[in-house]
Write a protein that binds this DNA or RNA. Structure first.
Lengths: 192, 192
DNA sequence: TAGATTGTTAATCGATTAACAATC
DNA sequence: TAGATTGTTAATCGATTAACAATC
């Protein structure tokens, strides 16, 4: 019976023990005073809270470099969700090229596919220029959650949650921090 | 001479006008009372602040699905940075397969490449299991900024900035929100 | 001038952390 | 029992927003 304590748990994910206790408290998860949390029970409680979205279908819209990488990424594909299909305006060509096990379908089939399969979550990996219209369509077709890789800021609307990735922005932010740090170091040295 | 006001600017990026004014104030960017900001000047000021990291080399470590997508992604590749090389334990094979313009080099060459080319920023796209050791090596070799796509939480250390992406976690979070929302809606309906 | 918008200060909000009583 | 760890409340911190004087 493997146990863990809030400071262990916090350490491994990079938050404070207070944070862990607070979160657990809010989620209604309780441990044993002085005894910590039994890992197996904890996992059980958590998966109960997360909701058993067993093998929910998600789709990838746009099958360029990023889209295809996500479709073939074997990293995920576990209990909670899997990529069921990709969509692209050049579906046939891509299908021929990559000989995929996950089908790439035409954009025209998007609406029906979402509705027929009750897809709730989509990944946007289309070119920036069409990201916003894609987003609007997805919402119209009933998608409730979106991960967006295009470099436009898509926003949450009522009942729809959007998570913007924007790798380029991340990289630029990092450079900003680096340059800032460097500048400060120089100042430090001058002062000494 | 195109102008913009803090509420326009805020709107387009999804923040409040106060926020924009606050940020500009802290960055030392000033506009004209009643006249807003001249876009061209604003861009100028901003690029001055961001620091002119002209055409800085970044590298991608791990050339699986995600890594290769990033290497071939033509989305970025603009003034501030570009992907100069990829690294993988199976460099030759991958090079043969993809016939790339950006070279994929062997992991053994990583240290020298970083030092010779003064690379400051790296993207980690290796399998989860080796992400942490890759991270430690990169830091040892002098990397100062990391974007991490592996599903492990890598942390900032002194002078090194890490940005964790973890797409799977994002998707799971979205499902959590969706399920939560759904549950609440049901309760709403029951109450009515 | 009157009206509009900046820039900055104060107020608010929320999230994180610290502290500590409860208790195993 | 003494010691350790939870669970919760209070204190702190930071970030966001509101407000408003300055002024173009």
């Amino acid at each position: 019976m493997i146990k863990a304590f809030t400071d262990n748990l916090g350490d491994t994910v990079g938050v404070s023990s207070s944070q862990v206790r607070k979160d657990f408290s809010m989620l209604g998860i309780s441990g044993n005073k002085r005894g910590g949390y039994v890992i197996s029970e904890l996992l059980n409680d958590l998966s109960g809270i997360i909701g058993s979205t067993h093998q929910e279908k998600i789709i990838v819209v746009g099958c360029g470099n990023i889209g295809r990488a996500l479709i073939h990424y074997n990293g995920f594909r576990h209990d909670t969700f899997f990529v069921a299909a990709g969509f692209d305006i050049a579906a046939e060509r891509i299908n021929k090229e990559i000989n995929a096990t996950i089908p790439i379908l035409l954009m025209e089939e998007l609406e029906n596919y979402i509705k027929d399969n009750k897809v709730r979550l989509a990944i946007i990996a289309v070119p920036d220029a069409v990201a916003h219209s894609t987003y609007e369509n997805l919402i119209k077709y009933g998608i409730k959650g979106i991960v967006n890789f295009a470099r436009v800021n898509l926003r949450d609307v009522a009942g729809v949650f959007v998570s913007n990735v924007n790798i380029e922005l991340k990289i630029e932010n990092l450079f900003y921090y680096l340059n800032f740090e460097e500048k400060n170091e120089k100042h430090e040295q001058q002062r000494i």
